[in-house]
């Protein structure tokens, strides 16, 4: 046991994402109110065109992935950089109603005080 303690720095930190433990409430909420969220193929076109993304860490493609993973804290932090200009919606090849998704995320976060 002692050995283990001293050599713990050699051990890689745990990088597993446990989907079962994540709270997917946001995803289910969006599926109900804005079902187009399910159409996303995470192609990244939205991120490529995003004018806010030119200056900040805003990355809609990552947010879309995080919605499914239930990483609400990340989403809450990132979504506040968006200015809803709608370029992502025009460019989306799967016609995800991105502005609707973002608006619904905002109202979900409002109700869950995140």
């Amino acid at each position: 046991m002692n050995n283990n303690n001293t050599l713990s720095f050699l051990k890689k930190s745990d990088r597993t994402i446990d989907y079962d433990k994540n709270d997917r409430a946001l995803f289910y909420y969006l599926m109900r109110v804005e079902p187009t969220v399910a159409l996303c193929i995470a192609c990244g076109a939205c991120t490529a065109t995003c004018p806010a993304g030119n200056f900040s860490s805003l990355d809609l493609h990552k947010i879309m992935l995080s919605i499914r993973r239930g990483e609400k804290v990340y989403i809450a932090k990132e979504i506040t950089q968006c200015f809803l200009c709608g370029k992502c919606q025009l460019i989306c090849p799967k016609n995800v109603n991105t502005r609707g998704v973002i608006l619904q995320i905002i109202s979900f976060l409002q109700s869950s005080q995140l």
């Binding site: 900040s56 506040t80 950089q81 200015f83 109202s107 409002q110």
Partner: peptide, 12 residues
Amino acid sequence: RIDKRAQQFHYL
């Protein structure tokens, strides 16, 4: 109706 908490445009 909308969330009153401000958007963070720190990059401006």
